[in-house]
Design a protein around this nucleic acid. Structure first.
Length: 287
DNA sequence: CCCGGAACCTGAAGGC
DNA sequence: TGCCTTCAGGTTCCGG
């Protein structure tokens, strides 16, 4: 699915079009998409609500409603949102829900695999309780990151995917960040040297920043609300197995499974043990 | 608490 | 062409 850069892009495109609009109705073509309460109640709670503000938290899209509640949208693996006009836009293939707005606009929620989620919550707590810090917020400091890694024995790749540890990173950008910092994905988090952890911290932010700048990646089913596609995947070094040979050293990119997730990496640039220059990092003068 | 595995679903792609 | 297997960007629940 869409990861942080993709959801951020969707949010940015929706803001100018739907802020201040009122939800006339929601048409469900697949009722299983609604979670947390009976469908009838969901429809009742959202009908007639004005959309005050649109924001993103992790991979969640949050629409603040005039009732004080929030419409939460999660695209999961294959979901996408498209904007159209009542009467003259054909809903995209695999449309599972249509949100009708008061000005004739329609938001199509397409999702081939039906994993996507729509729900109404009365407090952001329901989302916040599942998430760690945002990669770009002040609380997520280099020190916090480095110190946290030391306490965890889980594979570093798995930790990056843990939304409670850090919100927004998914499979593609985890692979890209590990490649950029030359770290073997299955290494335990606490085995990273201080210098590796520092490089990874900055790689995560750099990779996400670059992807947002490219409007996200459009690898399989992802589109922008206006129907265009992101181009971040053209910059991928390993993610999604699109690249055959490493751009840096020419070694064939390999695939392995880390905690159940397909993981692409360069066996030469990301060796199982840190290189000699990493093994004995410069000791900080203080402490 | 940690971890692996399965479940939720369906389509696309590759092998034969 | 058709059948079968594998894979897919996420999250959550269950059992050991």
């Amino acid at each position: 699915m869409p990861e942080l850069p993709e959801v951020e892009t969707v949010k940015n495109q929706l803001v100018p079009h739907i802020t201040g609009r009122t939800v006339r109705s929601v048409e469900l073509l697949w009722e299983g998409m609604v979670k947390g309460m009976p469908v009838e109640e969901f429809l009742k709670r959202i009908r007639g609500q004005k959309i005050l503000k649109i924001s993103r938290r992790g991979k969640y899209l949050l629409l603040a409603l005039s009732s004080g509640e929030y419409l939460v949208i999660h695209l999961k693996m294959t979901g996408s949102l498209r904007l159209g006009k009542d009467g003259d836009t054909e809903p995209p293939r695999f449309t599972r829900a249509i949100i009708h707005l008061d000005d004739g606009q329609e938001i199509y929620f397409a999702d081939p695999r039906k994993f996507g989620v729509l729900k109404v919550i009365d407090s952001l707590h329901h989302v916040e309780s599942k998430l760690g810090p945002e990669p770009f917020e002040a609380e997520f400091t280099e020190k916090y990151f480095i110190d946290s890694l030391k306490k965890r024995k889980t594979p570093i790749k798995a930790l990056l995917l843990d939304q409670k540890f850090l919100a927004g990173v998914g499979n593609m950008y985890a692979d890209e960040a590990l490649f950029a910092s030359k770290i073997y994905p299955a290494r335990s988090a606490d085995s990273l040297t201080r210098n590796e952890a520092r490089k990874l911290y900055h790689a995560i932010r750099d990779v996400l920043t670059a992807a947002i700048g490219s409007g996200g990646a459009s690898v399989v089913t992802y589109f922008h609300p206006d129907g265009s596609k992101g181009t971040a995947h053209f910059q991928f070094n390993v993610a999604h197995g699109q690249v055959k040979n490493c751009h840096v050293c020419g070694t064939p990119i390999e695939r392995m499974v880390v905690r159940g997730r397909g993981t692409y990496y360069c066996p030469h640039c990301q060796p199982k043990k840190p290189g000699n220059h990493e093994k004995y990092p410069k000791v900080s003068s203080k402490k």
